[in-house]
Amino acid sequence: MDLQPGRVADMVTRARRAEGHVVCHATLRTATPAICRGFADGPDKGRSLARAPGTLREISPP
C-alpha cells in the first residue's frame, strides 16, 4: 500500500488505544476482513486478541 509516512504507527496507536486491531489491507472491502498478521504478531497480541478466544482462525488473503 502507498501510505503516508507515520500512517502505520498512527493505525497501531489508535488500535491499541481502542483495544482493537488493524485490518489486513488484502482483506479490506471483502466479506471476511481479517486482522493484520503484522499487528497480530506484534507485542500487543495478547491484549488485543484476548477478547476473541477460540474465535480466531488463520486465513490466506484473497
Rank of each mutant, 00 (worst) to 15 (best):
M1D: 13
L3Y: 15
Q4L: 12
Q4P: 02
P5I: 02
P5C: 05
P5R: 12
G6W: 04
R7E: 14
R7D: 14
V8N: 02
D10P: 03
D10H: 12
M11Y: 09
M11F: 11
M11G: 07
V12L: 08
V12I: 15
T13H: 09
R14T: 12
R14D: 09
A15T: 04
A15R: 04
R16C: 12
R16G: 01
R17S: 14
R17V: 14
R17I: 13
A18L: 15
G20A: 13
G20F: 06
H21R: 04
H21W: 15
V22Y: 02
V23E: 03
C24K: 02
C24S: 12
A26T: 02
A26R: 09
A26E: 08
L28T: 07
R29S: 00
R29Y: 11
R29T: 03
T30A: 04
A31D: 15
T32D: 12
T32P: 05
P33Y: 00
A34D: 02
A34Q: 10
A34M: 02
I35H: 09
I35F: 00
I35W: 07
C36G: 01
C36N: 05
G38D: 13
F39I: 08
A40C: 05
A40E: 05
A40I: 00
D41C: 00
G42I: 07
G42E: 06
G42N: 11
P43W: 07
P43A: 15
P43M: 05
P43D: 13
D44T: 14
K45G: 01
G46K: 05
G46L: 11
G46E: 09
R47K: 14
S48V: 11
L49V: 03
L49T: 09
L49K: 09
L49C: 05
L49F: 06
L49H: 01
L49N: 07
A50T: 05
A50E: 06
R51I: 13
R51Y: 01
A52H: 15
P53L: 06
G54E: 12
G54F: 00
G54R: 11
T55G: 06
T55E: 05
L56Y: 06
L56T: 00
R57H: 15
E58V: 10
I59Q: 08
I59H: 06
I59F: 03
I59E: 10
S60L: 10
P61F: 06
P61M: 01
P61N: 07
P62G: 01
P62S: 10
